[in-house]
Structures are given as C-alpha cells and as structure tokens.
Design a binder for these strands. Structure first.
Lengths: 207, 207
DNA sequence: CAAGTTGTTGACCGACCGGCCAACTATTAC
DNA sequence: GTAATAGTTGGCCGGTCGGTCAACAACTTG
C-alpha cells in the first residue's frame, strides 16, 4: 500500500508501545507483527532479530523523549534551577497521561529495559548506558548555566547532574511501583536541593 | 533424602538466584528445577504456579535484605545521619560483591522485578509495593531520631525517607546500567543533603 | 500390619517462542 | 520491453513455555 517503508515504521511503533507497556521478555515478535499489521516473515525482512529491533526501537524512543520531555523542560524561558523542577513536573504529567490511558504508570522506558536486560545482553546494556547519558548532559548544561549566573555557586555540575538524574529514575521507579504518577511531582520538590546542597564540593564532614 | 521440605527450600533458593541474576521473564520453571535438583512435577507439588513461587521468593529476598543491609546499616552504633551514608556504602559494597562474583552489578532485586512486572500483574505489583515500604520505614525512623537529637531540625521524616529511598533505587539502577558498583557510593554522598535540605518544610519559594 | 499422608517421578499437553525460507508480487532501472 | 530489486506472504523449524497427571515411593500414624 504505502510506497516507502511504511511497514518498517509500523513495526517500530508497535514494538515501542508493546515493550514499553509490558516488558521485553513478555512481548513476542508475533504480537508485534499483529499490532503492526504485518506478517512475521516480513518482520525479518527489516530486522535481523528481536534484539536489533529493540535497539532501533530504543533509538526512536530516545528521540521521542528528547522532543516530549527534554526540550520542553530545559527550554531557557525559565531560570536554570526552575527548569529542573519543571523536568520533574513534566515527568509527572506524562506518567499521569499513561496512567489515564492504560491504567498503569509506565515509568521510564529506558530505565525499565535497563533493569530487565543489563545482565543478559552486554550490547544492549552499552546501548542503554549511552542513552541514559543524554538527559544527564542536558541537566549538566543547565546546572553550568546556574553556576555561571550565580544561582548555584559552589556546584559541581557533572556530579550534580548524575545525582539528579538518578533521583529522577528512582522517582519513576517508585511511581510505577505505586502506580501513582504524582509521586514524581512530590519527589521532585527535593531535586533542586539535591543539586545545590549535595554536591557543593565540600570538605565539611569526613568519616 | 532430606527429611523435611528440603526440596522446597532449594527451589526457592534457585528461583531467587536465577531471577535476580536475570529477570522474571528470562527464567523458566524448568531451569529453576534443574538448578534445584528437582523434577518439574515436584515443583508443582510445592507451588501452584510460577507467580506464587515468585511471591514466596520475594518474601525470602526481603528477609535477606533486612539481615544483610538494613540491620547493619541502621544499627545505632552511629549517629542517625551517618547511618544513611552507611546505607549507601553498604549498598555499594554488596553490589561490588555481585559484580566480582557474576560479572554484573545486579541492582535491587525488588526494584528489578517492580519495573518488569508492575504493569503485568496487579497482585505482584501490590506485593512489591508493600516490600518497598520496609526500607522506607527504616529510613523514616532513623530520620525521626535525627530530628529528635537536633541533627536534622526542620525535617519531615516520612517525606524525606521517601526521597532518600527513591534516590537509592535510582542509584542502584544507574549502577546496574553502568555495571559499576561504585556509582552507588558516589551518589550516596548526596543522600544526607537530600534528606535535610530537600524536605525541610519550607514556605521559601513558590511557583 | 494397614491406612493415610507427603513427596517424587517421567511422560505428556497445547501454545508459543525466535527465526527461516522458497515462492510470489510489486516497484524500479535500464 | 526485460531484468533486477524490494517487499510480502504462509508455512515451517526445533525448542521451550507454564502447567497437568497418574503412578509410585517413603514416611508417619494408628
């Protein structure tokens, strides 16, 4: 029907949705094909394996996250530190949408897969690790801006960004487990403090 | 051979190890039986289903976590706030052990399963949610002690405990994805600040 | 001893798993 | 036109999935 590789995109889309909503192990190639309206033989024309499909789906996912969360959250229409808060609020909003649509808070698609397959497939693990660096760098850049403009004086932007992003992933994990998107918003209230206080290169306490 | 339900324990143990090292979906009943030295028919004498087995395994796991991490970390031989730091250091140590043994950082067994099956099985999700409350309450009790002795004056113990534990789960997720246990230790440096600064019931900033 | 209970075994079930392939049909290039 | 290329199809592969069952062994209880 469609003239170009319309089918490939549908397969990718179906994979993203299904794996995100359930898990890697709980979704079969067959089901992906059914949702994409494609026969299984056709699947293997576009992707050599389920693993490769997952890799491609992950990339599509990362792009979607960038557009739907990262770009809006870290736009410079707000002071740097307030963008951090917006990052969590946006996360809560989107998780809330999924909750309303599917009945479940789905959490972070990258984090979900990371916990499921990091020990099983080193190639995928590396891929996941790389994908998780994107948001982290976004946060780091924001914190550098905050350091420059004086709103977060003694901060170590790279370290603080790691802390904030880990905190975000933890918040998403808790929200998914509780099936309550608002957990992300509430926990987000501590995020800025984590950034500014936590990693202000101190020699304060030792041992 | 053994006189009492020796087999049941071996099945449970095998399930804990295998599922923790891989994932729920990636481990079959058959493999669990093989590792336990038991035939599959015997498995279903003790457990009605893989799901029920997982539930029991989870309980065994929670008990092990209490003994190996919670009890040592939150023992009162240290001032309350320093126990929080010890919680993260201990987490890093144990993840390091698994790394050395298996080649992989395995993360939190409860968190792993929570992300994998929260959307697929409501009964298991509730169970997981309940298990995650244990550590949280431990942290909350510690923070209340800190509040009483004046080392964390304006704190909201319950809220701060939620934040710290989410942060811990996030740290374990990052460590597993990076396959580097020391991530937990490094991120732990921010944990106390998250507790004391983040949730000190403020009316400071708004909007 | 006999009866009942608890545990163990191996064979078996239908369904599905990821993946493969030869044949066929479009589309494009010459 | 023809030839090559890209895409599609249905059927098939061996293997594994979670789960069942009847027969049997062992130990406990009278």
């Amino acid at each position: 029907m469609g003239r170009q590789s319309d089918a490939r995109d549908r397969i990718l889309g179906a994979a993203v949705e299904l794996i995100y909503a359930r898990s890697y192990g709980a979704v079969g190639v067959q089901e992906i094909c059914e949702r994409a309206g494609v026969k299984k033989g056709s699947f293997y024309h576009f992707f050599p394996s389920k693993r490769e499909l997952t890799m491609a789906a992950l990339d599509a996912l990362a792009e979607r996250i960038r557009q739907r969360i990262l770009d809006p959250a870290f736009a410079n229409d707000l002071p740097p530190l307030e963008r951090i808060k917006r990052f969590f609020d946006l996360g809560a909003d989107i998780q809330g949408e999924y909750q309303a649509l599917t009945g479940h808070v789905l959490g972070c698609p990258v984090g979900n897969l990371a916990l499921e397959i990091s020990t099983q497939d080193e190639t995928l693990r590396k891929h996941l690790e790389r994908l998780l660096r994107g948001p982290e760098e976004r946060i780091a850049a924001t914190l550098e801006e905050a350091k420059r403009d004086g709103s977060a004086p003694g901060i170590d932007p790279a370290r603080a960004a790691r802390a904030i992003f880990a905190y975000m992933e933890g918040a998403l994990l808790m929200a998914k487990t509780r099936n309550d998107a608002e957990v992300v918003r509430e926990l987000g209230r501590g995020a800025v403090a984590l950034a500014t206080a936590a990693t202000a290169e101190p020699e304060a306490v030792e041992a």
